[in-house]
Amino acid sequence: MNVDASSNIVEIEDLVVRFRARGHKSGFFRGASWNRAVNGVSFSIKKGETFGLVGETGSGKSTIARVLVGLYKPSSGRVRILGREINYRKKEDVFYLRQNVGIVFQDPVGSLNPRLTVRDIVTEALVASKSVKKRMYDSAVLDSLERVGLRRSSLEMHPRELSGGEKQRVSLARALVVPKKLLILDEPTSSLDMTIQAQVLNTLRKLKAELDLSILFITHDINVVRYMSSRVGVLFYGKLVETAAAREVLMAPKHPYSEELLSNIPQLVATQSLDSNAATRALVEHSPASEGCIYRNVCPKVFDKCVDEPELAEVERGHDVACFLYHDSMQRT
């Protein structure tokens, strides 16, 4: 265990989440197959840190988020919150998890009950937490709404009367009405308009400083992740392939997949500069290798060692990469 374990808000070790796949033959368990949505992921989030998790659709980002609020149970692996290991079979452990971790989901419409008013939606979180006295409910709700930048008049409104950005703010108010240690943001802005996205991101940054939060920020938008995160992890089909400080991953990625992901950043470029090279590269479909390095089917730098599976190992101070290209150079030096 780390010496400075106390400063870690969350520690995840070798997390595996499997889902039963369809298409198995008749009979009990006969030919049943499992999909590993998350396959041996380990990382930790320090106090006051924003950890950005990036990856394509289906890379397991949201699954990790859901494990951290107890919506999915891990198939194996350990999850520790504030040093306490969570046993997902025990009710009080899951309760402890939810007391300390708040989440904002991607879909602002689906995550709010259309029949409740904003006041009810936020109050629900207070009731569930059991940590606030009933007579304090109203003031807590108001404080929370104010903090996320919602008008007092929205208190009695229903979600349908609010715009997309306001709905996400309600979600945020609900997540933070009981003070949390870790806030999970699962693509919180991807359904919002550009200017509204920027407003929400600014609010999130402000809140983080005010409330001394740690954040797990999940997104596929590299521009957003760069703006928000102190450290970044790159996920590819359930495997963490690289973690390091945001500047290092985004400016000098090491893993070939990270390099590729970054070459796809939406940038403000004028029309003719969509270079044909990048275009053809972008046309390759990704399919993960079933054994060995998960990226070797499409990796431009594949070599004979890649039939084995590389571990996520530190290759530079604070920079972990799961690729034999760097493990080798480390051994040589």
Binding site: E166, A198, N202, R226, Y227, S229, A246, R247, L268
Partner: peptide, 19 residues
Amino acid sequence: ALPSGFEDSPPLPVPGGEP
């Protein structure tokens, strides 16, 4: 409104208000 810069960059200069 396009996010640019790292964590320590200044807040994005966007107008308030909704569409």
